[in-house]
Amino acid sequence: MTTAPTPAPTTPTHRRRPRRRLGGASWLATVPLFLFFALGFGLPAVAIVIGAFTTSTDAEGGGGQFTLDNVTASVQGAYWTAMVSSLKLSALTALLATVIGLPIAQAVVTSRHTWLRQAVLTASGVLANFGGLPLAFAFVATLGNAGEVTKLLHLTDHGWTLYSFTGLTIVYLYFLIPLMVLTITPALDGLRVQWREAAHNNRATTVQYWRHVALPILLPSLLGGFVLLFGSAFAAYATAAAMVGATVPLVSRSIADALSGNVLVGQGNLALALSLNMIVVAVLVMAVYLPLQRRSARWLS
């Protein structure tokens, strides 16, 4: 009786994956991006830094001479008051928009109606980018001294005025709240249903779930959204300039006055020093925002 020879064991052949090599052609695709960044951000930033530490061309004694007077003056007197006012306005509006935008976004995420979610997110995308002169005109026509709502409710009799710090805060919330809804919605979508079910199985109430589970996870995203809103409010200019003018001191308005010579002649480089201060604030904002986004992505991924 003969037995069939057993086949020799075959070793599995593994296909070698081709190694991706970044050749010259691959790096060429990034050249337009770096070129745009260098022209759009690099050169203006270098010009601002150089101008902030040199004298203006229309100043006495000529321009181009090294000086610290511009930077020193930008953190003193009315300019420092404008900087502090801008920081207060940005922090207050960002905080209010974060507190108001979170429950709105949560209602949208938990809604069973898909059309409601799409409508709110679409409207938020439009309103978050609605600013400048059209927004100022809309509020002046509505809540100004001769606005329709002001006359209808007799708000002036109660001391209401749109052209104040409070009025500007309300106007800023018009585009900051939708921006917060857009920012926090992906983070709310990342909250897993299993976490809520596990909390309820352990007899945790809704308040306890949000206090001990949801909010600690959302905290990096909330702080990141707050920082993003702060930067957006801090950089806004056209709406405040068209609506309140010089009534509310803002650093963006101070830059415009220095460039146009409304305060002193020959202070063009002082505007560059004020711009440098805004860049420093923006860099600090981004330095806080990016690590918070990375931390929230670890939990919600």
Score class of each variant (00 low, 15 high):
Met1Val: 12
Thr3Trp: 10
Pro7Met: 06
Ala8Gly: 14
Ala8Leu: 14
Thr10Glu: 14
Thr11Arg: 15
Pro12Ser: 11
His14Met: 07
Arg15Asn: 07
Arg20Gly: 05
Ala25Ile: 06
Ala29Cys: 05
Thr30Asp: 02
Val31Thr: 13
Val31Asn: 03
Phe36Ser: 09
Gly40Gln: 08
Phe41Ala: 15
Ala45Ser: 15
Ile48Met: 09
Ser56Phe: 00
Asp58Val: 12
Ala59Val: 01
Gln65Ser: 08
Gln65Leu: 06
Phe66Asp: 02
Gly77Trp: 09
Gly77Glu: 03
Ala78Val: 13
Ala82Gln: 02
Ser86Pro: 08
Ala91Thr: 10
Thr98Glu: 01
Val99Gln: 06
Ile100Cys: 12
Gly101Glu: 00
Leu102Gly: 00
Leu102Pro: 06
Ile104Asp: 02
Ile104Val: 10
Ala105Thr: 05
Thr110Trp: 11
Trp115His: 11
Arg117Glu: 13
Arg117Leu: 09
Gln118Ala: 05
Thr122Ile: 12
Thr122Ser: 14
Ala123Tyr: 15
Leu127Val: 06
Leu135Gly: 00
Phe139Leu: 05
Phe139Asn: 04
Val140Glu: 07
Val140Arg: 11
Ala141Leu: 13
Thr142Asn: 10
Gly144Met: 04
Gly144Val: 01
Asn145Trp: 15
Ala146Arg: 14
Glu148His: 14
Val149Tyr: 07
Thr150Arg: 05
Leu153Gln: 07
Leu153Ile: 05
His154Ile: 04
Tyr163Phe: 04
Tyr163Pro: 07
Phe165Ile: 05
Gly167Asn: 01
Tyr172Trp: 13
Tyr174Leu: 08
Phe175Asp: 00
Phe175Ile: 03
Phe175His: 02
Leu176Tyr: 02
Leu179His: 07
Thr183Phe: 14
Thr185Tyr: 11
Ala187Ile: 03
Leu188Ser: 03
Asp189Phe: 03
Val193Asn: 13
Gln194Lys: 06
Gln194Glu: 09
His200Gln: 13
Thr205Pro: 14
Val207Gly: 01
His212Trp: 10
Ala214Asn: 04
Ala214Val: 01
Leu215Phe: 09
Pro220Gln: 06
Leu222Cys: 08
Gly224Tyr: 03
Gly224His: 07
Phe230Arg: 01
Ala235Phe: 04
Tyr237Asn: 09
Ala241Cys: 09
Ala241Thr: 08
Ala241Lys: 09
Ala242Trp: 02
Gly245Arg: 07
Val248Ile: 06
Val248Gln: 00
Leu250Arg: 02
Ile255Ser: 01
Ile255Met: 12
Ala258Trp: 01
Leu259Val: 14
Ser260Cys: 04
Ser260Pro: 03
Gly261His: 12
Leu264Ile: 14
Gly266Thr: 09
Gln267Ile: 03
Gly268Ser: 11
Asn269Leu: 02
Leu272Cys: 01
Leu272Ile: 05
Leu274Arg: 05
Ser275Tyr: 03
Met278Arg: 07
Met278Trp: 04
Met278Ser: 08
Val280Glu: 02
Val281Asp: 00
Val281Ser: 06
Ala282Gly: 09
Leu284Lys: 09
Leu284Cys: 12
Ala287Gly: 15
Val288Leu: 15
Val288Asn: 03
Tyr289Val: 10
Leu290Met: 14
Leu292Ala: 09
Arg294Tyr: 15
Arg295Ala: 11
Ser296Tyr: 10
Ala297Ile: 10
